[in-house]
Design a protein around this nucleic acid. Structure first.
Lengths: 112, 112
DNA sequence: TTACATACATAAAATAATTAGGTATGTAAT
DNA sequence: ATTACATACCTAATTATTTTATGTATGTAA
């Protein structure tokens, strides 16, 4: 359940940002982290998250390693070498976009 | 050609924001205004814009009036009464979302 | 008469999310 | 014991929205 249809297209970006800052994270951890950081405003659903992770892995941006912790399997994701290089420009572009979107949405109407 | 797939889901919001600030606008005008305000960072394609306008009209948020200007037809859109009421809460929600997204994307990684 | 801006529109294909399931383990409460 | 909830992964059908590629038509400047 995303709070807003605006979420579309942002899931990839969010994943890449978190994996730029953290050497490795697993899916469930990502959902919790996003909820925490955004005060519950952004909630990643599993149906959106896992396919996005698989796609990024298939494209060579992410790599995985599975570990058993407390009897449960965790699949850790981390940036590949190739991923690390491309992530920077992708995130720069995303930040520029979001900045302009915020700018647009918070513009005061000019009164003439 | 949108600059970024992040555009998904934002077209409606952008339209509603512009029509909250301007009593009426026509499609082509909206594309130009968005380009201008966002320094070319956000470009609405016609294939996304027109279906979105038609949908909002069909849902009763927008109403239209067509005028011939310089030999060309312009279709002006404006908020309906019902539209005007709902736009405020929709935009508040969108602004909250975008704020949290920006927050997330610009967070400095905590170093421990 | 060519090119480009203005101004509308649609339709097939692609993309990506929602919704709604499914499996399985650990832990705390009844 | 067993119910409930958190942890942890996953997929598939449907829905929503955009991209891409067109099409029509007029005004203006080269």
């Amino acid at each position: 359940m995303s709070v807003n249809p605006l979420l579309k297209g942002t899931v990839q970006t969010i994943i890449l940002k978190l994996l730029e800052d953290n050497t490795r994270m697993y899916g469930y951890e990502i959902t919790q982290k996003v909820k925490e950081i955004t005060a519950g405003e952004i909630v990643l659903t599993e149906g959106a998250l896992y396919p996005a992770l698989h796609k990024l892995e298939g494209e060579g941006f992410l790599q995985t390693s599975t570990e058993i912790v407390d009897g449960r399997a965790r699949k850790y994701y981390s940036l590949t070498e190739q991923g690390g290089e491309q992530v920077t420009s992708k995130l720069d572009e995303a930040r520029a976009f979001v900045e302009q979107l915020q700018n647009l949405l918070t513009l005061k109407p000019s009164m003439e």
